[in-house]
Design a protein around this nucleic acid. Structure first.
Length: 560
DNA sequence: ATAGGGTTAG
């Protein structure tokens, strides 16, 4: 190696570092060149290990602690490093230390601490920060406002986020994309799309960040036509399809059932990381193409991309849907032996599905005994104990009970959820007509065409009764709360969507609907009946299947 | 002397 003992070449060398080991070598050079007290070089060392080589904040922290009088840049850099690390709480602690050391923050500091608050969902501290900025007389800049909007969105307060956004004098593309992704993350997909359409109307051009969110929303809603339109918009505007946007498109096309397009985008991508590969593999898994998913998994390994736990969920579920028992078992074993990934409950779930579908009852029992957690209702109880704050877990448990007809337990779980005042996650269904996505929740009365829809709904109910359908839930849920009554009356979201579809799609064309979150037992049966009575093909995409491969062993290719 | 906010997979 050439000697590089001046500051300039050392800085250049730090920039080229890809591992912490490289930094150690440079530190050795600094000792030899008597440059250990060089503030600029020390700053760059901290920056490199704290930010550029993320995951090595502790190393940066050691250098920082050895510095006698760290300057503001060093403080900022170390706080920034922690804010993006898995210990953002340390960023906040350091921010307090900074005051104790008599160092005043600047605008950059606030941005980094805000990010840490965001990761920790510390709304109060974020607001405190907001008043501090004003107190010290610094300008409140767009990145701060965007950070606060993000914080509100992350904490589920889209109303506050919206007020801030509306009051912004000069929202930039980051502001828009924060809002769009905020709606998307809070399950307000339609609002996200509305905002995107507003952007179009106001001639605000969308960049790759916003578009990735929008594309994701299209996938969530199964809005293929709109998704295709956004894709053509991306091409037309010459927006570069980078790793993230490419991955978003692949995911959108596979979720919307268009695997050809998903593959086309995937193959056109200049680079592919573990997320991109996992998305494409999941696409094949969802549609029951087990062999293809496995081929892709092999290709991924050949490309030296290291699979993670998400990749394995998709690969194992692909095996389960295609009956590839041996192969699946083999891959499951490699999780720990080759990749040191501890299988999670969902991976065990895939394995149980795999054995069950192959009819290997004995094998299943044996496998279950090796599991760290029992795979029945009792695990669900454990899940609730482990994470009692996640509403999804309650829904999962309630569904497990429902599938066994244990209605009183269903009510108990629901009541528990209510007592804990957990935000109800409404199940919804949607249908896309002429690029517009119409979303319905159970008993939805807000639609402008509610009269027509309800008329159709009652007609549907009568016709179903004529062919002998008795809503199985009606009989058991008579003495429960209002919501359950609506449920029992048949105002399920998917029926509202179908009614709307019957009213608005031309005769002969299929009705494609997406159902999310709450599966009722007779949903598929009812849809089949409606489709027979009205002589219309009804295609249901059940989003729950994407999340919970382990539930009752239906193959996903039934849905598209 | 250096630096900031927003995006993707189950």
């Amino acid at each position: 190696m050439k000697p590089m003992l001046d500051q300039g070449s050392l800085v250049a060398a730090i920039k080229r570092c890809t591992r912490v080991g490289d930094l150690k070598a440079i530190q050795a050079h600094m000792v030899r060149a008597n440059l250990t007290q060089d503030t600029f070089l020390t700053s760059k060392l901290i920056e490199s290990s704290a930010v550029t080589l993320s995951g090595h904040v502790a190393y940066a922290h050691r250098i920082f602690s050895c510095t006698h009088h760290p300057n503001l840049f060093m403080w900022n850099t170390i706080i920034r490093g922690y804010s993006i690390s898995d210990s953002p709480i340390t960023a906040i602690a350091l921010y307090r230390d900074m005051f104790l050391c008599g160092i005043s923050p600047n605008n950059y500091t606030f941005g980094f601490v805000l990010k840490a608050c965001c990761k920790l969902l510390r709304l109060c501290e974020g607001q405190e920060l907001q008043s501090q900025i004003m107190k010290v007389g610094l300008d409140f800049e767009t990145p701060h406002l965007n950070g606060l909007i993000k914080l509100y969105a992350a904490c589920g307060c889209m109303d506050n986020a919206c007020v801030m956004f509306d009051e912004m004098p000069d929202p930039d593309s980051a502001s828009w994309s924060t809002m769009v992704s905020g709606y998307a993350q809070n399950g307000q997909a339609v609002e996200a799309l509305k905002l995107f359409q507003e952007m179009q109307a106001e001639n605000v051009s969308s960049d790759a960040f916003t578009l990735a969110s929008v594309v994701g929303v299209c996938g969530d809603l199964g809005a293929l036509d709109l998704g295709k339109w956004v894709h053509s918009y991306i091409d037309k505007e010459g927006v570069k399809i980078d790793l993230v946007l490419g991955t978003a498109l692949v995911g959108m096309y596979s979720k919307c059932g268009s695997l050809d397009n998903a593959l086309k985008v995937f193959q056109g991508m200049a680079e592919r990381d573990v997320t991109a590969w996992s998305t494409m593999i999941a696409g094949y898994a969802i549609h029951g193409h087990g062999e293809k998913a496995l081929q892709l998994f092999d290709a991924m390994k050949r490309s030296k991309t290291i699979p993670n736990c998400v990749t394995f969920t998709s690969v194992l579920s692909a095996c389960s849907h295609s009956g590839l028992v041996e192969k699946g078992h083999q891959i499951f074993e490699t999780m720990w032996t080759e990749y040191k990934i501890t299988p999670q409950i969902k991976h065990y779930g895939c394995m149980v599905d795999l054995f069950c579908q192959a009819g290997m009852v004995g094998h299943t029992h044996k496998f279950i005994q090796t599991m760290p957690i029992e795979p029945n209702v009792h695990i669900s109880r454990k899940i609730l104990k482990l994470d009692p704050s996640s509403p999804e877990n309650y829904v999962l448990v309630s569904n497990v009970y429902a599938s066994q007809g244990r209605w009183s337990s269903v009510c108990q779980v629901r009541r528990l959820m209510k007592d804990k005042a957990l935000k109800k996650q409404h199940g919804w269904s949607s249908i896309e007509i002429n690029f517009l996505v119409h979303k319905f929740i159970m008993g939805d009365e807000s639609h402008p065409e509610r009269e027509k829809i309800y008329g159709m709904l009652h007609q549907m109910a009568r016709k179903l009764k004529q062919v002998g359908h008795v809503a199985s839930t009606v009989d058991v849920l008579h003495d429960i709360d209002e919501e359950e009554k609506e449920y029992a009356l048949g105002l399920h979201s998917e029926r509202l969507a179908i009614a709307y579809g019957l009213l608005h799609t031309p005769n002969g064309s299929p009705i494609r609907i997406v159902k999310n979150l709450r599966v009722c037992r007779d949903c598929h049966e009812v849809i089949k009946l409606i489709s027979e009575v009205y002589n219309r093909e009804i295609i249901l995409r059940d989003r729950v299947r994407f999340h919970r491969f382990r539930e009752r062993g239906c193959s996903c290719n039934d849905y598209w």
